[in-house]
Design a protein around this nucleic acid. Sequence first.
DNA 1: GTGAAAGCGCTAACAC
DNA 2: GTGTTAGCGCTTTCAC
Lengths: 339, 339
Amino acid sequence: MKKVTIKDVAERAGVSTSTVSRVLSPQINNYMRKETREKVLRAIEELDYRPDIRAQSLRGMRTRIIGLVMPDALNPFYQELAYVLEEICYRERYGLLVCSSKNSPTRELTYIDLLERQKVDGIILSTVGLNETKLNSLTKRGIPIVLVDRDVPGADIPVMFTNNYMGGCQATQYLIDLGHKKIACIIGEMNTLSSINRLKGYYDTLQKNGLEIDKKLIKKGKLTFKDGYRLMKELLRKSGDDFTAVFCVNDIVALGAMRAIQEKGKNVPSDYSVIGFDNISLSSISNPPLTTIAQPIKEIAQAAFKTIKRAKRQGSLKKKEHKFWDTKLIVRESCRKIG
Amino acid sequence: MKKVTIKDVAERAGVSTSTVSRVLSPQINNYMRKETREKVLRAIEELDYRPDIRAQSLRGMRTRIIGLVMPDALNPFYQELAYVLEEICYRERYGLLVCSSKNSPTRELTYIDLLERQKVDGIILSTVGLNETKLNSLTKRGIPIVLVDRDVPGADIPVMFTNNYMGGCQATQYLIDLGHKKIACIIGEMNTLSSINRLKGYYDTLQKNGLEIDKKLIKKGKLTFKDGYRLMKELLRKSGDDFTAVFCVNDIVALGAMRAIQEKGKNVPSDYSVIGFDNISLSSISNPPLTTIAQPIKEIAQAAFKTIKRAKRQGSLKKKEHKFWDTKLIVRESCRKIG
DNA sequence: GTGAAAGCGCTAACAC
DNA sequence: GTGTTAGCGCTTTCAC
């Protein structure tokens, strides 16, 4: 009925609370009689006692909570990030506080405030609206923050992400290697560095291969199924059979594009090759299964978590440090050789 | 650099910490001079002070954290539950600690232990392995627990869920109304009450309409795309055109079934009508868009949250109380009228 | 109206 | 080896 505290355990075992505390953290200063330890252990067992993490953390220890702040919890890419991160946290007995900013800077700030007040051990953030000033002031306040997926140039904070440029190159080069010469591109609205870099990879690879860049084949929109569908329809209407392949900035968009093609009575990959980006789990069960560029989500999550733990241990975060991970081409069935 | 505490604010404002505290909770006992309050407010502002929730909660207040423990974070249904719940929590400035048990009872227990030690204000649980004894002992320890989606018969705990039986009836009746007489069924492995009740709805509705139950048309498997696909293939092979429609226990399974049909060169809905369950977001962008039964996720989430808040306020949970919500038929394009 | 002081559950010097 | 004590940041009697 009543909460059982360290005092109850101490009384029951006939020792002081500090002795109980010592039993609880055996790694440090574990000199004590076997007999005493066993008495305490028995009392803990009998009372089914579990130390209060809040109280522990007040005394300077960690809260064992990590906050994840991401732009969109419905986006499969972030869902997978959350999933992977949760797994990592679980192994180390951390909890993951999941927050979606829904692309709203206000909401993002509110969440970060909440996380700060919860004194989480660290925040893994894919920011939609924070600037360097705010970010720097946050780290000064002692909360380790790690940026993932989206960079904030001026901020003195570690950032880990995918080499999006490389991914853009890989995708484009793959299509070129298959014999495609006219390659369309459906891309996000350019407000994120990821999009910019993926597009840059597309540009550079075309040029490197002596192919012309046709602005009419580049469509911009939101990163949704709907917009992928809509923009592909536009492409099909306007440029007819001017192109034979399309590079989509992410898998969701690619899925929308495939739908548009199929609705037009055309076939993927016979008529048009489609390549995506992210390798979300959906892309393996789409029809046809989507060829795509995989992001190193696990590596990013792992690194972010480690960085936070290290920062917490050392009492401070390393300054700006960029970590890139390579992308990987995942060949499935949405692209074909031509010519 | 240094964390700013209530003491700092008190000093700066030239008042005691209790006065600052009073300013922080204006709802209770707010008798104080305007002047004093403003001094304090100014100091808070200047120092950018945020009270530590851990410390607050240690003094008997809530932690403003809710734990969600679910069987499978990759299942779109639970993803949407988490999403909806997060939104509700956000509005009230709560954090949501997301835990997936991955269908492992051990993992579930570990998480619940963690949540208990974090002294979360409540746990919303879709259990995979907890029995009534454990559950009851947990509530005795003072943590409000609410069961969602899955019931544990003996437990003295509120449980809120979908009227799965009704959903099974609705789906089946809809198909019958469209003229279908031979209706197949792809269902989960029967270890959950949801599956059982949905199947029961299917049975009863067939009977009510004077239709025969054909065991050969009922397939059991896991609740995955893969198994939906596999079982549909079996159905198509074995019973050829013995049936014209199929009721799938959830949308993911239905999507897999549709894929199998399409790969066979058949069409949905011309050759076979398909109906799902859950109304996950994917089902609106599938090809064809899936007709399905919607679960009242928002209502469940809202009710669960409210129940926890009430319990926290009153210091105790109501005993066993079942709350059912109606399902709703969502007509899209995967079913057609025949005969 | 406001301050002093006790105490939430725990850890970590410091005694002995 | 083990107990005593102070204190983490906050709220809440109880004085004044």
